[in-house]
């Protein structure tokens, strides 16, 4: 479904070169629920942005559904985001002057669906997150958890093949976080691939597979199920080296 081969991302300024990702390799299969963890500045967000086609990268190849999309045009990547990818953000990022239905409708508008189809899908998506009754409300009238559920509905409305979630519960209290997580698990069980970035170990453990990013490289912990994930940086690096002794 998703495969990154030797992807590198280098930010250059006049003074320094920063390697946000280096020789990053990852493969995610259809229907998986992958949690991505890692310390701040490790490259989690860069990975997510590249996976979501929000940013380009310097080197390597990125395959989505078997198609190499390393060098697609801006228009094409917008279309791919629209059709195949759903985004869920930590800050919800609902558009404040649109009501719930209108927020959920945004991706459908860009897809070019007619009004009837849009309405059907909006209602369906909002029902899925349990907020259909409040579709005329503005985001500011909802609690944080509800807002995030609307954001999930927006991500689902286009029926994407996979969801990218960036700290989806970061701004929520634990009760709401659990509700949102349960919702994501339901969605996953219905067949949607999910990649979730989080720094919450408990949440991460609920995913099928855990990936840790350290210094722009990946350590796949599916091989080490049950290990303590809050290990020190040095430990990860050792694992990293053990995994790929060639790459430095």
């Amino acid at each position: 479904m998703l495969a990154m081969k030797n992807v590198s991302k280098i930010f250059k300024t006049d003074l320094v070169e920063t390697h946000a990702l280096r020789d990053f390799n990852l493969e995610v299969n259809e229907g998986e629920f992958v949690a991505v963890t890692g310390p701040s500045g490790s490259g989690k967000t860069t990975f997510l942005n590249i996976a979501g086609l929000l940013e380009g990268f310097t080197q390597g190849d990125y395959f989505l559904d078997g198609v190499n999309i390393s060098n697609v045009s801006d228009n094409k990547s917008a279309a791919i985001r629209n059709e195949k990818i759903g985004f869920i953000f930590q800050g919800f990022n609902l558009i404040s002057d649109l009501n719930l239905a209108e927020n959920v409708e945004v991706p459908l508008r860009y897809r070019g669906f007619n009004a009837k189809e849009r309405q059907r899908r909006v209602i369906e998506a909002l029902e899925q997150v349990g907020l259909a009754a409040r579709m005329k409300h503005l985001p500011s009238q909802l609690s944080g958890g509800q807002q995030q559920r609307v954001a999930i509905a927006r991500a689902l409305a286009g029926k994407p093949r996979f969801l990218l979630a960036d700290e989806p519960t970061g701004n929520l209290d634990s009760l709401m976080a659990r509700q949102v997580m349960a919702l994501l698990e339901n969605i996953n069980q219905a067949g949607t691939t999910i990649i979730m970035v989080t720094h919450d170990g408990d949440l991460a453990r609920r995913a099928q597979r855990n990936i840790q990013i350290v210094d722009g490289q990946v350590c796949d912990f599916s091989l080490y199920q049950g290990q303590d994930l809050s290990a020190t940086k040095e430990a990860h690096q050792q694992v990293n080296i053990a995994n790929k002794p060639v790459a430095v």
Partner: peptide, 16 residues
């Protein structure tokens, strides 16, 4: 700009 960022992420092209 933040709203535009969301719209772009959701799949709006530059032209749109």
């Amino acid at each position: 700009a933040p709203e535009v960022g969301v719209r772009r992420a959701i799949g709006a092209s530059r032209l749109q």
